[in-house]
Amino acid sequence: MAVGNRALARERGGARSAPGRGPRPRRQWKAYLYLAPALAVLGVFLLYPLGQSVWISFFDWNGLSLATWVGLDNYVDIATDPRIRAAFGHALVLIVFFALLPVLLGLLLTAVMGRAARLRGLAFFRAVLFLPQVVASVVVATSWLAIYAPDGLLNQVLRAVGLEVAARSWLGDFGTALPAVGLVGSWVGTGLCLVLFLSGAAQVDRELYEAARLEGAGLLREFLAVTLPGIRGQIAVALTLTVVAALKTFDLVYVTTRGGPGDSTTVPAYLAYERAFQTNQVGSACAIGIVLALLILLVSLVIARVQPAEED
């Protein structure tokens, strides 16, 4: 700390800083020493197995005996096998529930509450709305299992308001299982989006709102002309987080439905797990994992590209 304080003092003094002494341009080989431990751990436990995953994806392997080279067959399967295609299709549906719905809902609420950024007590609501982000997904799944159960909260409410006919086993019904799983994602994501957008709207220059109002802009015009452009960065972050979460969904499906009933809630991550550790189709499982990684990379890059970062 002593050196730091002295350095700070000198910085404040200012006058003595020697001119012309820029950052030293010479190469600092020592850097590799500082990087070595992190790169070693990253390499051995993440990058090396990633490479192996790519390699194994070109084989037909049951995890035990000798593997057979099959080229791109596992990838062709992803495009043609109805079970795998269904899983990726379900992931698309989940994107609607995990990402689109929360973002749209968040935008709608921000439009209505755009000026709420200065409300007293907002910190309390922010803390509550953000809570689903910190609760373990297995716990979230467990609590929604109880809600969707045949005698759970949802059906109790329906019966109480006389909609007995609508009551059902939500996660056991072919028609409702996937949307039911999706709605849990909406529940997790909406608070995040709202908190993000409200914090973004709070940073928008107040004068822009004043100006919009002087020109007689209504809530809608004000939102479209001022708020929306002002929170583009937050929208990009929200979309990235929620779309990636939808694509990676595993815990929720594992705990609530295990892909059932039938195959109605299978998702790529669950299928990869099942094939790798239960049905001994390790090559296919690796191919699914790699495609999933590529999809996530692609989504992140596209969203980052559409939204050039203005900060940093």
Binding site: R27, L46, L47, S53, G289, L292
Partner: peptide
């Protein structure tokens, strides 16, 4: 610090930020 390969190595680290567990956990287990 300045050193050869700085940006490449940094991108490699960033890659780790985006990789889902599913893409490496199977060989890792073996």
């Amino acid at each position: 610090m300045r050193f050869p390969g700085r940006s490449v190595l940094f991108y490699v680290v960033l890659l780790g930020l985006l990789l889902p567990v599913e893409s490496f956990v199977i060989p890792l287990y073996h």
